[in-house]
């Protein structure tokens, strides 16, 4: 391993944020977290605990009011263009075809797209199994397919960091499992540093290398759990005793928070 890859890629030191300084209540506080290069970290916690706040801090869309967030030893002080963001809703542009939606980040950033970019978009769509839909309009696709397009769009600029804000929460359970495995395949082929926000404990354990468990608002770190289940993971992973143990451990944090008080 080279020295660079041993270093923490994303580092949060005593990070806290307060949306409304007048009222003085913190959304998140005292977060310490190190994410390694090409590591898949999932964040779980009750709703409103500031999971999305963390994600926005890494993207530089939000500057923390306390502590420091740095990416590759550089403090984040403004929006970064080396992150790909996948939102809870697909947020595709309804007036563009699927392919143009995938190309949108380039078109938006530089104002033009080349033939090579178009090829790359088609390649990414093929990887996500969406080739035959590339000329369709978003509203002709199912919710699961739309969210796949959202993931492909986030990969277009080949970002180092993939930020996913409850990306599968609007999907039905079966689609959700399938798209989770698809994400793992994509991630294996194009390794990225992933910060994955979810409120599904089993999804977090199934996908991640480590799971950060957050408390009720103001969100703090309750636990950081290594998921030592070997990859590649599949639908059978859910039936292993280790999976049950790990989900039980996280569930305990969520449902019996007083154990930590």
């Amino acid at each position: 391993m080279s020295k660079a890859s041993e270093r923490a890629f994303v580092r949060m030191e005593q990070v806290g944020h307060c949306y409304d300084p007048a009222a003085g209540n913190m959304a998140v506080q005292q977060i310490d977290l190190e994410i390694h290069r090409h590591e898949f970290v999932a964040v779980v916690g009750p709703s409103g605990c500031g999971k999305s706040t963390l994600l926005r801090m890494v993207a530089g869309l939000l500057i923390p009011s306390a502590g420091k967030v740095s990416v590759f030893d550089r403090q984040v002080t403004e929006p970064r263009d080396d992150v790909g963001i996948v939102f809870q809703k697909p947020t595709l542009l309804p007036w563009l075809t699927v392919r143009d939606n995938v190309l949108f980040p380039l078109k938006h950033k530089y104002g033009l797209v080349t033939a090579a970019d178009k090829n790359r978009a088609e390649e990414l769509l093929a990887m996500a199994g969406l080739s035959q839909f590339s000329a369709r309009m978003p509203d002709e696709l199912s919710g699961g397919m739309q969210q796949r397009v959202g993931i492909v769009r986030a990969l277009l600029l080949n970002p180092d960091i993939l930020l996913m804000d409850e990306p599968f929460s609007a999907l039905d359970a079966m689609t959700r499992e399938q798209i989770g495995f698809d994400l793992l395949n994509i991630w294996t082929e194009n390794p990225k540093t992933v910060l994955f926000i979810t409120h599904s404990i089993s999804e977090a354990v199934l996908l991640a290398d480590r799971v950060l468990v957050m408390s009720q608002r103001p969100g703090t770190v309750l636990d950081l759990i290594d998921i030592d289940i070997p990859r590649p993971r599949s639908a059978n992973t859910i039936n292993t005793p280790r999976f049950a143990e790990l989900t039980a451990r996280i569930r305990k944090h969520i449902y019996e928070p007083e154990a930590h008080a």
Partner: peptide, 14 residues
């Protein structure tokens, strides 16, 4: 306009 798209635009530094 959905806030996410504005965030997307900001994060692209367009």
């Amino acid at each position: 306009t959905p806030e996410e798209l504005i965030e997307l635009s900001k994060s692209l530094r367009a």
